[in-house]
Design a protein around this nucleic acid. Structure first.
Lengths: 174, 174
DNA sequence: CGGGTATACACACAGTGAATACACCGTGTG
DNA sequence: CACACGGTGTATTCACTGTGTGTATACCCG
């Protein structure tokens, strides 16, 4: 998901410190899964090492000191390029569902059970997301829709595969 | 994708050595992207440390020596549990496309360009996959279908988001 | 002292690329 | 014909990068 690029982009409008960055990230992008503080600082240290951000002094004030980070020109270029480049959709070819089905077939287990289990889980999550979508603002709705579309895609595939299971069993054992 | 679980499962039918395992993996699961040998051996060493596999002697013969690995009872249990458990579909909520769109909006760049670029890339890949699907066996077809379903899901989402861009811009800037 | 703020550090897993080593096989040369 | 040579396929190791987790630490304020 490129947390590192995202943090870098959040730094573009102006200098920030790690703790602040973590909260900005969570507010926009943590849909259920917050970023760990540890990851923020280790990511920042790598960005620093790679010259995409710079330290811009320590801020004293209420509470512990804050290290402010600024994005560099190289950093801006990096964000720019990232946003202009399409994501590579290759990973869709490496999918866990297919892997599990084939491994079930190869090991003489029930591939039907694998498909059924996943189908139930997906349906449950879809019900949940539909509820969340109804309560959320536009951003939440778009996120939920994205997930729902992909869950539907999986469901279609689960049905298709269930219907072809015997034929698939022969192919993979060759 | 849990390469480690996959290698473990491939070890279930009988002992194998790393090189052999790599080829077995590639044959079934490398759709375009082969496994690196390095990854096989580092994965095996972790499985060994965790007690999911054991070394089962060295095989002399034609060529270099081969270290045979056997799955342990703990390993079988692990595979069993993995196959019986549904994959958690949460990751669909953490998606790069949404992230890019929001970051474009926040930084005053053109979110429409982001959507358009991704749309073109997806369409190109879909054409390619449709061709591959026509040439492949049933396994290839299922893999391609899975990817195609998800690419379609993305496309639907891209359209939906494009239509809501102005409203989204207001929400994310609040 | 407890709780919110802020950072650092050690560690784990995942993945990459180069290096090493052995055996087999064909080929050109003395 | 013997044999050195190099290329190819087999098999493993290692050092290193990137990503992410959990814990410890320190500060300030009420």
């Amino acid at each position: 998901m490129s947390v590192s690029r995202t943090l870098l982009a959040l730094l573009e409008p102006g200098p920030r410190h790690g703790y602040d960055l973590k909260r900005a990230y969570d507010e926009q992008f943590a849909h259920g899964k917050q970023l760990a503080y540890g990851q923020v600082y280790s990511t920042l240290s790598r960005l620093l090492r790679n010259g995409l951000v710079e330290e811009a002094g320590v801020e004293h004030g209420a509470g512990p000191d804050r290290k402010r980070y600024t994005i560099t020109d190289a950093g801006v270029t990096d964000v720019e390029t990232w946003l202009r480049t399409a994501e590579n959709p290759e990973p869709y070819l490496q999918n866990t569902l297919y892997t599990k089905v084939v491994l079930a077939l190869l090991s003489g287990r029930s591939a039907h059970d694998v498909l059924d289990t996943q189908r139930s889980a997906h349906l449950a999550v879809m019900r949940d997301l539909t509820r969340r979508k109804a309560d959320g603002d536009l951003a939440d709705q778009l996120i939920c829709d994205h997930a729902l579309f992909h869950l539907e895609a999986d469901l279609r595939w689960l049905e298709l595969t269930a219907a072809r299971l015997d034929a698939l069993a022969e192919v993979v054992r060759s």
